[in-house]
Amino acid sequence: MTPEDIARRIIDANNYLTLATADREGRPWASPVCYTPDGGSDFYWVSRPDTRHSRNLAERPEVGIVIFDSQVPLFGAEAVYLTAYAEQVAASDLARCAAIYSSRFPELASFGAARLQAPEALRLYRAHVLEASVLINDDGPDVRVPVTVPV
């Protein structure tokens, strides 16, 4: 299995990513968000614009992302690491991106464009991947291998 195959398996098998943001002064913040991938180069999630991570994105759009299964046995972890540029999806692209986000699980079907703009409380966000790597479980020290985007 190639590193790209491992990354795709991890992305497809998990429901949450950990989004790492920082405020204007560089204070870090990490948040789990339910995501939908779009071909391995874009990831979508829904959040309120007044949450700490959303406010951070408005000031500083560079993010780190990790996707992993926290239920594997100790020392059995595999993970996908991403650096990305993230932003709230613009109104001009909202219908298309909301359709992508809501397509992954039946529970997300109600997240259409109308639910993701004023006067509603939630907004749709997108992270565009700039670089990616995968942590490979090889029964030794952590080994991270760069992978081609899209993963």
Rank of each mutant, 00 (worst) to 15 (best):
D139A: 14
E4K: 04
Q117C: 13
W45P: 05
Q71E: 14
P37Q: 11
Q71R: 15
S92M: 05
N56M: 06
D12G: 11
P119N: 12
V129A: 07
H53S: 02
R8P: 00
S70L: 06
T2M: 02
S133R: 09
F111W: 15
F75W: 14
V129C: 01
E107V: 10
P150K: 08
T36F: 05
L108I: 08
L19H: 02
N14R: 12
V151S: 09
S133E: 05
A121F: 06
P61M: 08
S133I: 07
T51F: 00
T51D: 11
P37K: 11
R52S: 04
V134I: 03
F105N: 10
A118C: 00
A95F: 12
G112I: 10
L116P: 10
A20L: 01
F43N: 00
S31A: 12
A77D: 07
F68W: 14
Y81C: 01
A114F: 13
S70K: 00
W29A: 02
I136R: 08
V33E: 09
S92A: 13
P146H: 09
A91T: 12
N137I: 00
A86K: 01
I6R: 11
A13Y: 06
P106S: 04
I11Q: 06
N137E: 14
V129P: 01
S41K: 03
Y125R: 07
G76I: 07
Y85K: 10
A7P: 05
G140V: 00
N56L: 00
G39K: 07
R144L: 06
V147I: 10
V89M: 01
R9C: 04
V147N: 05
L19M: 12
E107R: 02
V143Q: 13
A77N: 02
D5W: 03
T18C: 10
A20P: 04
L116F: 10
L17K: 02
R104M: 07
M1A: 15
R48T: 12
I6N: 09
D139C: 11
P28V: 03
N56G: 03
T83M: 10
C34M: 15
N14V: 03
P119R: 03
A118T: 13
D139E: 12
I11P: 05
S102F: 14
L124T: 07
R60P: 07
L19R: 04
F105G: 00
Y85L: 06
E25P: 06
V89C: 04
